[in-house]
Structures are given as structure tokens and as C-alpha cells.
């Protein structure tokens, strides 16, 4: 990275040891959530990453490709993959791992509504993560944000990448919105681009003004349904947990 380049973004709210949730804004954003969490855990705590992936997610989005992990700057030799057949197994394995202080991070991907992941389950995970100092990153795919014991809750969304020469797609870019944080920084928005060589996020501007409008009207992608009829739902998101 050049000296006068943009300063890397430090997502300081992702403090070590704690439960952090990431909700895919749309169905199609879910595929990259695992990658996003591997990136977010880079350069923090040392140690192997334990990645709990549900079989349903393997069917839906494919099997992680080690060459692809290398291309994102991760070391596949440092990743333990746990294949869980259902949500309950994923949570049990995640909790077991969250107690192991030797890990660098625990990454869990849950698909769908996942009723087993309730306040009690998330509280257990959060306590285990705080006791061991291992950050637990929970990806939620195809589920609306729900109250939980997580320290921070994020909405993650893919951003169009910076075009390279000959209109080639550039490095991965994301838009992260902080839905909830214990220290009250809700609503913070980050537009970031992954700098694989330095293993850090760089700030990134939204490509053009028409982008948001175009995304809103776009055909592709499934928008996560928000239960509008439930009274007090928005308050629930911001307060409970």
C-alpha cells in the first residue's frame, strides 16, 4: 500500500472476545458472508479459525475452495472446517469451540430462521466468547435481524467493485451497516474494499449516485422480508438484546 493512500478502516467495535452477528441484506449476499468474516478476523487474535458451515449452506452456495481462501489472503492450513448437519449441531460445535482460547476466531453460518438460536443460545455463546477471548462471528442468512445477546449486529451487503483495466471486476467490496452496538454507535455505515496484500479494509466511495436507486429497483436478489405487521418490531431491533 502506498504511503499517501487511504488510511485503513479499523472496525474497533469488533472488539476481541464477543459475539458479533452479520445479517445478509439479501439472499445473494449470503454466499460471501463467510469470506467477509474471515477477512474481519484477519490481523486480530492469532490462532486457527474454526469455521462451522451448515450442510444446507454447502448445498446452496457450494463448498469453500481453498484456492479461493488463499486469494483472499487467508491461510487454508489455519482453518478448521466443521460441517454441521443442522442448526443445533452448528450451535453445539460453535459453543464447544468458543471455549477454546487457542482459536483465533469462531465463524458460524446459520441458514434460515434457526429457531434454536434464541436468546439463551446467543447468551451462552457470548459468555463463552468473553471468557475465552475468542471472537465469535455469526452469519445469519435468510433471516430478519432478531434480538439476541450479540455485542454488535451488522447488516452486510455486496458493493459493486472498483473496475480495473478492461472493465475487470476489482477486489471484493462490501457495505457494512451497524444495526446495533452496545456503545450506541447504531447506524454507522462503512463502505469498504478488501486489500488482500495488507490484509485490511480500505475505505471506498459509493460508485455513482444512481447506484442506490438502481439497486432498489433491480430485479435480481431476494430482499429479506421484514415483518411489518408486528407491533414494535423496529424498537425491538434497537433496544432488546
Amino acid at each position: 500500500m502506498p504511503e499517501d493512500g487511504p488510511r485503513p478502516i479499523c472496525l474497533s467495535v469488533l472488539a476481541e472476545g464477543g459475539l458479533h452477528e452479520f445479517f445478509a441484506a439479501r439472499e445473494a449476499d449470503g454466499a460471501a458472508l463467510g469470506a467477509l468474516m474471515l477477512m474481519l478476523s484477519a490481523g486480530r487474535k492469532k490462532g486457527a479459525r474454526l469455521w462451522v458451515r451448515q450442510e444446507a449452506q454447502v448445498r446452496e452456495a457450494g463448498m469453500p475452495c481453498p484456492a479461493g481462501l488463499v486469494e483472499l489472503g487467508a491461510n487454508p492450513a489455519e482453518v478448521l472446517l466443521f460441517r454441521a448437519r443442522d442448526v443445533a449441531t452448528a450451535l453445539q460445535a460453535g459453543l464447544e469451540s468458543a471455549r477454546c482460547a487457542a482459536l483465533g476466531a469462531v465463524i458460524i453460518e446459520l441458514r434460515g430462521e434457526a429457531r434454536a438460536y434464541d436468546l439463551v443460545a446467543s447468551r451462552r455463546l457470548a459468555l463463552a466468547a468473553r471468557a475465552s477471548g475468542v471472537p465469535v462471528m455469526m452469519a445469519r442468512l435468510g433471516a430478519p435481524p432478531m434480538p439476541s445477546a450479540a455485542q454488535t449486529r451488522w447488516k452486510a451487503e455486496a458493493l459493486p467493485s472498483r473496475a480495473l483495466v478492461a472493465k475487470a471486476p476489482g477486489p471484493p467490496s462490501f457495505e457494512l451497516t451497524l444495526l446495533r452496538a452496545r456503545n450506541g454507535q447504531e447506524g454507522l455505515r462503512y463502505c469498504v474494499e478488501w486489500d488482500r496484500d495488507a490484509r485490511q479494509f480500505l475505505p471506498r466511495s459509493i460508485p455513482d449516485a444512481g447506484w442506490s436507486a438502481r439497486r432498489a429497483t433491480s430485479l435480481s436478489g431476494v430482499v429479506v422480508p421484514v415483518p411489518v405487521h408486528r407491533s414494535g418490531t423496529p424498537d425491538l431491533w434497537s433496544r432488546a438484546g
Partner: peptide, 8 residues
Amino acid sequence: PPARPFTL
């Protein structure tokens, strides 16, 4: 940029 995908 990444030449190989994240999932296959």
C-alpha cells in the same frame, strides 16, 4: 484481484 472463487 482474486482469481479463484470463494466457493465452488
